[in-house]
Deep mutational scan, measured.
Amino acid sequence: AEKTGIVNVSSSLNVREGASTSSKVIGSLSGNTKVTIVGEEGAFYKIEYKGSHSYVAKEYIKDIKDE
């Protein structure tokens, strides 16, 4: 089941290729951006990003809701 969340950062949140802080950064999301969460892996959520799937750190996503 998909969930949505809100990016909870003051500046921007790195979007990564994989579920690791050493993964390549492929983009960023600004605070209060709504994201669609399709899964989770460790400390990361797998999200829909620009037509494919990428990862963001869970600690920076708030207001998780089931869609």
Rank of each mutant, 00 (worst) to 15 (best):
A1G: 14
E2L: 15
E2P: 15
K3W: 15
K3D: 03
T4Y: 14
G5T: 03
I6R: 08
I6T: 08
I6Y: 12
I6G: 04
V7K: 02
N8Y: 10
N8E: 08
N8F: 10
V9R: 06
V9P: 08
V9T: 13
V9F: 07
V9N: 07
S10I: 13
S10Q: 13
S10R: 07
S10M: 12
S11E: 12
S12C: 15
S12N: 10
S12M: 12
S12V: 13
L13V: 15
L13M: 06
L13T: 08
L13H: 03
N14V: 15
N14C: 15
V15P: 01
V15F: 02
V15H: 02
R16N: 07
E17A: 10
E17C: 08
G18A: 13
G18H: 14
G18P: 01
G18L: 11
G18I: 06
A19E: 02
A19Y: 04
A19I: 05
A19S: 07
S20V: 04
S20N: 08
S20E: 07
T21L: 15
T21Y: 15
S22V: 09
S22M: 09
S22P: 03
S22T: 13
S22N: 12
S22E: 14
S23E: 04
S23N: 04
S23G: 05
K24D: 06
K24Q: 09
K24L: 09
K24C: 08
K24I: 07
K24E: 07
K24V: 07
V25G: 02
V25M: 04
V25W: 05
I26H: 04
I26R: 03
I26S: 04
I26A: 04
G27A: 05
G27D: 03
G27Q: 02
G27N: 02
S28C: 14
S28N: 10
S28P: 03
S28G: 06
L29G: 00
S30I: 13
S30T: 12
S30W: 09
S30N: 10
S30L: 14
G31P: 15
G31T: 13
G31M: 11
G31Q: 12
G31V: 11
N32I: 05
N32H: 09
N32C: 14
N32W: 10
N32Q: 10
N32V: 05
T33E: 11
T33V: 09
T33C: 09
T33A: 08
K34W: 08
K34E: 08
K34H: 09
V35D: 01
V35T: 01
T36S: 09
T36G: 04
T36I: 14
T36M: 09
T36N: 10
T36K: 13
T36R: 12
I37K: 00
I37R: 00
V38C: 07
V38P: 00
G39M: 03
E40L: 06
E40N: 04
E40T: 07
E40S: 08
E41Y: 07
E41I: 09
G42D: 06
G42M: 04
G42H: 04
G42T: 03
G42A: 06
G42R: 04
A43T: 09
A43N: 13
A43L: 11
F44H: 03
F44N: 02
Y45D: 01
Y45W: 13
Y45Q: 01
Y45R: 00
K46A: 07
K46F: 04
K46Y: 05
I47C: 02
I47M: 01
I47Y: 00
I47Q: 00
E48A: 11
E48L: 15
E48Q: 11
E48Y: 11
Y49F: 12
Y49E: 01
K50A: 10
K50E: 12
K50S: 07
K50V: 06
G51E: 06
G51K: 05
G51R: 04
G51W: 04
S52P: 02
S52A: 11
S52G: 15
S52N: 10
S52I: 11
S52L: 12
H53L: 11
H53C: 08
S54I: 03
S54G: 15
S54N: 06
Y55W: 11
Y55E: 00
Y55M: 01
Y55N: 00
A57V: 07
K58M: 08
K58V: 04
K58F: 03
K58T: 03
Y60F: 12
Y60H: 11
Y60S: 09
Y60D: 09
I61F: 05
I61H: 01
I61M: 04
I61G: 01
K62S: 14
K62Y: 10
K62P: 03
D63N: 10
D63L: 15
I64M: 08
I64T: 08
I64E: 08
I64W: 09
K65C: 12
K65G: 11
K65Y: 12
K65N: 12
K65P: 10
D66M: 14
E67N: 13
E67P: 12
